Computed example of a mutant assay.
Amino acid sequence: MSESKLTKKVIGDALMDFCEEKSFTKISIQDLTKKVGLNRQTFYYHFSDKHDLLRWVYFEHSLCYLKSENLSLENWEEQALKMLKAMKEKSTFYLNTVTADPEILMNEFSEITQELFISLFNQMDEEKQLSEKDKYFYARFFSYGCSGVLTNWILEGYQESPLEIATQLFRLAQDIEFFSYRLYSQNET
Score class of each variant (00 low, 15 high):
residue 32 L to A: 02
residue 7 T to I: 10
residue 27 I to H: 07
residue 9 K to M: 06
residue 20 E to W: 13
residue 19 C to F: 08
residue 11 I to D: 02
residue 30 Q to P: 02
residue 5 K to M: 03
residue 33 T to Q: 07
residue 18 F to P: 03
residue 9 K to H: 05
residue 35 K to M: 15
residue 19 C to D: 07
residue 14 A to Y: 03
residue 25 T to P: 07
residue 24 F to E: 12
residue 10 V to E: 08
residue 32 L to V: 01
residue 11 I to Y: 00
residue 5 K to Y: 12
residue 8 K to D: 00
residue 32 L to R: 01
residue 33 T to G: 07
residue 10 V to T: 13
residue 27 I to M: 07
residue 21 E to H: 12
residue 32 L to S: 02
residue 23 S to A: 11
residue 33 T to Y: 06
residue 16 M to L: 14
residue 19 C to M: 12
residue 31 D to N: 14
residue 24 F to V: 11
residue 32 L to Q: 03
residue 11 I to S: 02
residue 20 E to H: 13
residue 26 K to S: 13
residue 8 K to R: 07
residue 6 L to Q: 13
residue 34 K to N: 13
residue 15 L to A: 05
residue 31 D to P: 03
residue 12 G to M: 02
residue 6 L to S: 08
residue 22 K to W: 10
residue 19 C to A: 09
residue 27 I to E: 05
residue 20 E to Y: 11
residue 19 C to Y: 05
residue 26 K to D: 14
residue 21 E to Y: 06
residue 31 D to I: 06
residue 14 A to Q: 03
residue 6 L to A: 14
residue 6 L to G: 09
residue 19 C to L: 09
residue 13 D to G: 09
residue 24 F to I: 08
residue 29 I to F: 03
residue 14 A to I: 00
residue 25 T to Q: 09
residue 16 M to T: 15
residue 17 D to K: 15
residue 28 S to W: 03
residue 18 F to G: 10
residue 34 K to G: 04
residue 16 M to Y: 06
residue 32 L to D: 03
residue 28 S to M: 04
residue 22 K to D: 10
residue 20 E to T: 15
residue 5 K to N: 09
residue 35 K to L: 05
residue 12 G to H: 00
residue 21 E to T: 07
residue 10 V to R: 11
residue 11 I to C: 05
residue 23 S to D: 04
residue 33 T to R: 04
residue 35 K to V: 02
residue 24 F to L: 13
residue 23 S to L: 15
residue 31 D to T: 03
residue 18 F to V: 05
residue 10 V to Y: 04
residue 32 L to G: 00
residue 19 C to P: 03
residue 18 F to C: 08
residue 27 I to P: 00
residue 34 K to C: 07
residue 24 F to W: 14
residue 10 V to L: 09
residue 35 K to Q: 12
residue 29 I to S: 03
residue 21 E to F: 05
residue 26 K to A: 14
residue 8 K to A: 00
residue 15 L to G: 00
residue 28 S to I: 01
residue 13 D to K: 10
residue 35 K to A: 15
residue 7 T to L: 04
residue 30 Q to M: 08
residue 5 K to Q: 05
residue 11 I to M: 01
residue 17 D to H: 15
residue 6 L to P: 04
residue 23 S to Q: 13
residue 30 Q to R: 09
residue 33 T to M: 05
residue 15 L to P: 01
residue 23 S to P: 06
residue 17 D to V: 12
residue 33 T to V: 14
residue 29 I to A: 10
residue 29 I to P: 00
residue 30 Q to L: 07
residue 30 Q to G: 12
residue 18 F to L: 15
